[in-house]
Design a protein around this nucleic acid. Structure first.
Lengths: 190, 190
DNA sequence: CCTTCACCGTACCGATCGGTACGGTGAAGG
DNA sequence: CCTTCACCGTACCGATCGGTACGGTGAAGG
C-alpha cells in the first residue's frame, strides 16, 4: 500500500484532499489528474484503480485518530478519566477546525452503504479498531459497564461529526464536550 | 411538489426506495425507470430533473419524524419527560427495523457536502425544523438549558443512526436509549 | 369511421465515467 | 554518438451518466 514515487505521492495528496472535501463518488480520476498536474496514466501507475485509491485514502485517515489515543495516554498517565477528556477535547478541537467535514471513515460508509464494498469494509474495520482502542482507554475507569460507556461516547462523537455538516461546528464541538462530560459523570457517580 | 399521475407515483416510490437503500448518487435514472417498468421520458414528465426528484425524496422522508413528535405529544400530554422518552424509543425502534440505513436527511447531507446544493439545503432546513420541534418538546422540562439538551439529544440520535451503518443496529438502539436517559437525568438532577 | 389528443417508449443526444494503447522524450550507460 | 529504458502524456476505449426528439398507440368525441 506504500506509494513510493513522488508523482504517486502528489496524486495521493490531491486525491485525499478532494475525496475528503467533496466525497469519493463526486470526484473523478480526471479531476485528480488535472489538479495533480499529471496525466491519468500516471495515476494508474501508482494505483490499481480508483477504488484502491479510495481504500488507501480511507486507511490513511484513520491514523491520526489512533495517534490521539496514544497521545492522551502519554499526556495523562495513570489518570484514565483525564485521558478520556483529553481525547474528547482533541475530537472537539478537530470539529472546530475550518474545513472540517465530518469523519472521513463514517462519510465513506455512508457513500458506500453496501457492507461488502471494499471501501465500506475498510472503513468499518478501522472504526471497529478505533472503538476497541477507546474501550481500552475506558476500561480502567471504575464503572460498571465500560464497554457500554465507550460505545455511547463513540456514538456521541459520530453524532457531533455529522451534526457539524448539518448544523454548526462550534455548537457541535461544545455540545460534544458537555454531553461527554455528563455521560462519563453519570457512569462514575456510583 | 405534488405528484399526481399514477405513473409518477410509482416512479417516485421506486426512487425513494433506491435512493434510501443505495444512496442518491449511486442510483441512475435508467435504473429507476427500469425498476418502475416505465421509460425514462415518463420520469421527466413528472419531475423536472433527477435533482428535483432527489429533493422531493428528501422532503418526504422528513414527514414521519415530524409525525412522531406529534404522536409523542398526544400519547403523554402534560408529561414532557415521558414525551421525550417516547420519541427516543420511537427512534430506537426505527433503528432496529430491518433495512434501516440511517437518517435519509443526514445521509443526503453527507452525499452532497456542498451546503449550497439544493439537496443539502433542503435536508439541512428540514433537520433544523426538526431540531426546533425537539427543542419545543424539551422546553417545558425543568432544566437550566433546554436548548442545549435538545441539541445533545439530536447529536446522540444522529450518532446512533450513523453507528448503525458501521457497527450493530441492536447495540446502537440500546445505547441510544440508555445514553439519552442518562443525559436527560443529568440535566434533571439538581 | 375518422380525427383529435394525451400519453408512452424507442432510439438517440453530448458529456463524463474509469481505464488503457501507444508513441514520444530524456537521462543513463556503453 | 548511439542505444537502452524508465517514465510520461495524448488520444483514445466502451460504458454509463442525465436528458430529449419524435414517431407510435389507444381511447374519447364528433
Amino acid at each position: 500500500m506504500e506509494v513510493r514515487s513522488p508523482t504517486g505521492q502528489r496524486v495521493w495528496g490531491v486525491a485525499c484532499d478532494l475525496f475528503y472535501r467533496e466525497g469519493i463518488r463526486a470526484v473523478g480520476v480526471a479531476e485528480i489528474a488535472e489538479r495533480s498536474g499529471v496525466g491519468k496514466p500516471s495515476i494508474y501507475r501508482s494505483f490499481e484503480s480508483k477504488e484502491q485509491l479510495a481504500v488507501t485514502y480511507v486507511q490513511a485517515q484513520a491514523a491520526p485518530s489512533h495517534a490521539w489515543l496514544d497521545a492522551a495516554r502519554a499526556a495523562c498517565p495513570d489518570d484514565p478519566k483525564a485521558q478520556l477528556r483529553h481525547v474528547i477535547d482533541a475530537l472537539a478541537d478537530r470539529i472546530s477546525e475550518p474545513g472540517f467535514r465530518g469523519c472521513p471513515l463514517a462519510n465513506a460508509c455512508v457513500e458506500f452503504p453496501d457492507r461488502d464494498h471494499p471501501v465500506h469494509r475498510t472503513a468499518g474495520a478501522l472504526k471497529a479498531e478505533y472503538l476497541e482502542m477507546l474501550a481500552e482507554l475506558v476500561a480502567p475507569l471504575p464503572v460498571r459497564d465500560p464497554q457500554g460507556l465507550a460505545y455511547m461516547l463513540q456514538m456521541l462523537v459520530e453524532g457531533a461529526n455529522v451534526s457539524t455538516q448539518i448544523f454548526s461546528a462550534e455548537r457541535s464541538a461544545a455540545a460534544l464536550k458537555e454531553a461527554a462530560e455528563r455521560l462519563i459523570r453519570s457512569f462514575m457517580d456510583r
